[in-house]
Design a protein around this nucleic acid. Structure first.
Lengths: 343, 343
DNA sequence: CCAAATCTTTGAATCGTTTCATTGTTACGA
DNA sequence: TCGTAACAATGAAACGATTCAAAGATTTGG
């Protein structure tokens, strides 16, 4: 219930000036050993804790960084958030997290809040078109780094993942393990990620003259959507089936796997190899452990913080767009047929 | 790059006193229509945004609430966080989120940070023994509400879920659908949740004289752990098998389901019914949609905020421990045998 | 038309920190 | 012993909002 102790109380208690207490906290070298000890004792005895609002007011900006993601429930973002928090902590900042939930007005509210809080900078995975607002923020000295979205380097710094490369990686892996009749499962094609991954897969398939790629449109990116595509495949004649399937994400792949393994006529990976995208936790514990493409979420979060730090330091108008390449994770679902039958 | 406009700039621009601008923002009724318009125009023209640090300094406390969870990646907490954010927004507060990751020192860092920020109050799902720290916070006027942990009402308010009731609900449901030879899968027994759910299940089984409950210890709470318990069951003689299995969480249940369905000798739910706990997203899209026990996460988050508001309003030393009862979600994995064979 | 009551507006004081010019202290060589 | 340099400590000013007593303007009733 006591109002908490201020730096003034500490100064009185230690019989020094307030400036000295401040120096003990911020520039310990400027203070003599004796005085320092006295002050520290007083701090301890009074249980003094700095008031961040006052520091901030004086400094003109806070030590927090705003981070707005599309969905905290999505493991992709959860992981980015964690990495960003850790990286921020290293440089003495804290992350204020906002979840827009794909909702432009929630997103806007968070931008308001962060502006009132005078955050040092903003990391955002935007829903709507927020460029106008971000421009205002920049004029006010609050730089932004876009997350999971490629930005024009003249405008903003950004961190993103190369989905085309990911698609290439997945398809190339199927080809490398001997598959030739590939299928891509994903949809709707209007989603950039879905389209880019397909494009990358096409690129890989073109490298092998005898390889083909069939595109199977799915109704969304869920396990159920995958299952219905899988059921459709099961009904086909065996000769007509692909021997390697690449799904736009792991949920789809798990759905396809459910369909194929339920009817005990088709085996994964002997008859059909299967690879997903995202490498969610469940991939490793599927009935047949699922190969996948892992996005470098930790690097995304860390780098976003680093780019923001760059923006804060230099006043140059040049920005950087860092594009990461995802990583292939090989598991049993794409094991070469001979390896499996040998085992 | 411009330092952003202050209330003083607005006052000059509108040719009024700073107090008037403040009144326009906080007590619009005290200001005449003409003046108000002039001030609002000035605010708009200068793009003025309140400096929260200054408000906070004057007010002595912030408009933020600290929330420390064990793991933001866990859907249970993700959902609690969301609900808390929404409830806080309704009362004009923002939530500062911290992820302790089951790590006592990270937890402690967040408490430090929140204390410096002078949060209004703290919601915490504690890792270590933080009662000493929380007592200090309370003395300083920062009340705490414990989340997902039952607290002594003389000490703290808390919101928690009755795991015993959840266990009872699950077992009772298996019994109600005609199963009599039940099994409980979970471990290690040292985890409170695991033990409480078992206790509830035992209670239900005692109500049916002809029912039995076998306890199968699992090595953790993962899909893989569930699968190895499942494999062990598959090897048993058919007469020796349970006809209803209750797993301490959904991951275990999904693992058990994988084992049982892979060997096409046992059918779910005809031969064995299966129910999990937590109702994770995957439960609905399992090969056989999984029945489960849903925890009222939204209610937890919302109520935690409400209890905190109570603490902030009244100065009474009495606290409240709100205990929620979980909810049964019935899906195909526990359908009565006759229903399924009929369909 | 005046006094009283009501409504508006004013601006200095305040919150707790950091900064920095100034003052005070100590040590050392000449 | 004195002058100087290096080091310590001081405390007023500033950050930007809110508050509130007081002054000023306007309305009301007689």
């Amino acid at each position: 219930m006591n109002r908490s102790a201020s730096i003034k109380d500490v100064a009185n208690h230690a019989s020094v000036a307030v400036g000295t207490v401040s120096n003990v906290l911020n520039y310990p070298d400027r203070v003599s050993q004796r005085t320092k000890e006295r002050v520290l004792r007083a701090i301890d005895e009074l249980g003094f804790v700095r008031n961040d609002a006052a520091r901030q007011l004086r400094a003109g900006h806070s030590r927090t960084i705003g981070l707005i993601v599309l969905d905290v429930g999505n493991p992709f973002f959860t992981s980015v958030v964690r990495a960003a928090e850790d990286a921020a902590a290293l440089q003495g900042s804290a992350v204020l997290l906002g979840d827009s939930g794909h909702n432009a007005s929630r997103e806007s509210n968070y931008i308001d809040l962060f502006q009132e809080q005078r955050v040092q900078g903003l990391l955002i995975s935007p829903v709507g078109d927020v460029t106008a607002r971000l421009d205002v923020l920049r004029e006010r000295g609050i730089p932004t780094v876009l997350v999971d979205r490629l930005a024009d380097e003249n405008q903003y710094s950004s961190v993103s993942v190369d989905d085309d490369a990911g698609g290439y990686l997945a398809a190339r892996h199927l080809l490398d393990t001997g598959r030739r009749r590939l299928a891509y499962v994903g949809g709707p094609a209007s989603i950039r990620q879905v389209a880019d991954r397909l494009q990358g897969a096409r690129r890989a398939v073109k490298e092998e003259p005898d390889a083909t790629l069939e595109v199977l449109d799915s109704d969304g990116q869920t396990v159920l959507a995958g299952r219905s595509v899988g059921n459709m495949l099961v009904e086909r004649g065996r000769a007509d089936l692909p021997d390697g399937i690449f799904c736009a994400n792991d949920l789809l792949a798990l759905g396809v796997m459910q369909s194929l393994t339920m009817t005990h006529t088709l085996r994964i990976p002997e008859d059909i190899a299967l690879i997903g995208y995202d490498d969610i936790d469940f991939a490793v514990s599927a009935v047949v452990p699922l190969s996948s493409i892992r996005q470098p979420t930790e690097a995304l979060g860390r780098t976003a913080i680093e780019l923001l730090a760059e923006e804060l330091e230099s006043n140059n108008p040049r920005h950087r767009a860092v594009i990461f390449t995802p990583e292939l994770v090989v598991r049993q679902s794409t094991a070469p047929a001979q390896d499996v039958s040998a085992g």
